[in-house]
Design a binder for these strands. Structure first.
Lengths: 202, 202
DNA sequence: AAATACCCTTAATGTAGTTTAAGGGTAAAG
DNA sequence: CTTTACCCTTAAACTACATTAAGGGTATTT
């Protein structure tokens, strides 16, 4: 059978296909999910979350690109993650504990997102265990990424980390300015510029 | 009613209480879990996992303490996590993907662990959704910890990170040698020694 | 009791990455 | 068409941390 994949004018095809990579949703689960989703269009430089706010949503990105970052006491931004189309972004710490976030989530490009509120997400978890399963696997994959990155940060040079980033995230590499990549790698834009240049001179 | 909490001479009280912090297990779930658990006594310096091995188990620590670390191409160890009693440890990446691990898990103290094999864990996930839920929350908490640590690594000095570690993990702080803490903080033991001393001289 | 293996510290020297400052490029906004 | 705002690069001085080397302490092994 074929399902309607536009409800209230919201295109839901992407998110439904997204879950097919895990345990695919049945019609009842799709209905439960899609009736709890809000679509938002986000402009470049617009924030989904700012320091001090409590994070209210788990956000699926239909199109566009976001960065989540913290700002240190000198005012320097440190990018924790990028997330583009068909990915999730949220400050899970703030969402779970309902405490003010220390982070910002900001659009790098004009974007369209689908958001689920914490209450709705809890409803889905409680009534449809498949969401527990799917989000367990999603978060496990993110945990693995983060752990590999932490190890790299300790054990590899900035150039190694840069090359690995370019290999691992080709869909991000060519649309992000070097300032943002530098902040993700944990170096200044000046230093990134230097090591990229040194590499060619060899 | 009161359950037997020793099966085949294995003390299961701790792990059952552990799950009470999340969604507590009912008798059927306890039975399913405990019949799939293997107890092992581990000596100091003994490995649960070595680089090149495929990680086969999710491990609950009854007593003792472990470190998980990677070794860089210069042979230097970098501690990713410590885990002590009433905590879990595993290389989730290797466990999931069934690929050789790049990490070591080594006992820092004589320890007793309860292990669940990947197959048994998948059985529990499939037949008792509560395990999906509980492990989702467990891994989410670990993700939050890791994310905070990564941000700190970028934005705080080694002294800040040291003081924060001592505050946050008092149950680890006083039983770990400084060499191990230095490796966790991402600095050399020599430098840690220096900054601790500089602090007092002020 | 001696020997080995860790562990902690101090200090000199070396280096990866920062800071500051400056100049030039390109895209968006008026 | 000009202005503003980012973005990228170069280069010099600076700083946080690494490396090497050495000495002393304490626990574990022989």
């Amino acid at each position: 059978m074929i399902l309607t994949i536009n409800i209230n004018g919201i295109s839901l095809e992407n998110i439904i296909n997204h879950f097919k990579k895990y345990l695919p949703l049945n019609n009842e689960e799709i209905q439960a999910l899609t009736s709890r989703i809000t679509e938002r269009k986000i402009k470049r430089r617009q924030f989904l979350l700012q320091e001090g706010d409590v994070c209210k949503y788990f956000t699926y990105i239909q199109s566009g690109c976001f960065k989540m970052y913290g700002v240190d006491d000198k005012g320097v931004e440190h990018n924790l993650v990028f997330a583009a189309e068909d990915d999730w972004i949220s400050d899970i710490s703030s969402l779970h504990r309902e405490l003010p976030s220390k982070l910002y989530i900001e659009a790098i490009e004009p974007s369209v997102v689908l958001q689920i509120s914490k209450g709705d997400l809890w409803y889905l978890y409680t009534n449809f265990p498949k969401f527990d399963r799917n989000f367990r696997v999603i978060i496990e994959d993110k945990y693995i990424e983060l752990q590999e990155r932490l190890l790299q940060t300790f054990s590899a040079t900035a150039l190694d980390r840069y090359e690995r980033f370019m290999d691992q995230y080709p869909h991000l590499a060519n649309r992000l300015p070097n300032t943002q990549i530098a902040s993700y790698l944990g170096v200044t834009a000046e230093f990134l510029s230097k090591i990229k240049n040194d590499r060619f001179k060899k």
